[in-house]
């Protein structure tokens, strides 16, 4: 899931700038799980904005704000409230914000910062395991991603800052390569540790990303 966090309220107020009325959009999926843009957070935002003197014309928590057609349809269902608002505050990831901005000519305000593709450790605790790098190496790295888990994303072993199996950026954090090493040592064929990994092919990660499935 996409892990997101609400921006400081003052920053959201700054972005609203000249508008006195706003419409709120949340998302039932990732932003709900992250408690950054679900029903509860939309309600809290509504309270905070009302106290700050803004008129909230209405709100909507969309089932997958990244779904562009659905966002367009749902906004049309609240057309009057949207029309009455000077701006739309979107409490969803950057993809959700852009479904909204594509569906309306209203000023669109991003209320969240999108952080990473996260695994859920337990309720309210998320960890980045995958960087969506375009070319998966996990089969050769013991199922631990160095692109993500190594602070430098390096592919051929630990850097000079590793000590006691910990990372130079945080003495509490394990070195990704120490973990890969342990994992691959249990593998009877340890050849993967010794084999050179060539530079990554970033050509496999077109930017902006596009994928069209064959019919």
């Amino acid at each position: 899931m996409i892990v997101s966090r609400q921006k400081p309220f003052a920053e959201i107020l700054d972005a609203i700038d000249g508008s006195s009325s706003v419409f709120l959009v949340g998302c039932t999926k990732c932003a709900t799980v992250c408690k950054s843009g679900g029903e509860e957070e939309i309600w809290q935002m509504q309270e905070a904005l009302s106290s700050a003197g803004f008129e909230v014309t209405g709100s909507l928590v969309i089932d997958e704000a990244c779904h562009m057609l659905r966002v367009g349809r749902d906004l049309r269902s609240k057309q009057q409230m949207v029309t009455d608002a000077g701006a739309i505050i979107v409490m969803a990831c950057g993809a959700g914000v852009q479904s909204v901005s594509a569906a309306t000519s209203k000023k669109t305000i991003a209320a969240l910062d999108s952080l990473f593709l996260g695994n859920i450790r337990r309720f309210g605790q998320f960890e980045q395991k995958c960087s969506l790098c375009g070319e998966c190496l996990l089969s050769r790295t013991g199922g631990i991603c160095p692109v993500t888990a190594c602070a430098k994303g390096i592919l051929n072993g630990p850097c000079g800052g590793m000590d006691n199996g910990k990372c130079e950026t945080d003495p509490e954090a394990p070195c990704a390569w120490a973990e890969i090493f342990t994992q691959l040592q249990e593998d009877p064929d340890g050849s993967m540790l010794e084999s050179y990994t060539p530079p990554k092919d970033y050509g496999k990660l077109p930017k902006p990303g596009k994928l069209k499935l064959a019919k």
Partner: peptide, 29 residues
């Protein structure tokens, strides 16, 4: 030829680290 200390050690902590290659790949290059 080196990987390089992480940006968090330095005086431009806001910078984007490149690390397009690692030290082994740079030696190969």
């Amino acid at each position: 030829l080196l990987t390089g200390d992480h940006l968090s050690c330095g005086d431009h902590k806001e910078a984007k680290g490149v690390f397009d290659l690692d030290a082994v790949q740079l030696i190969d290059a």
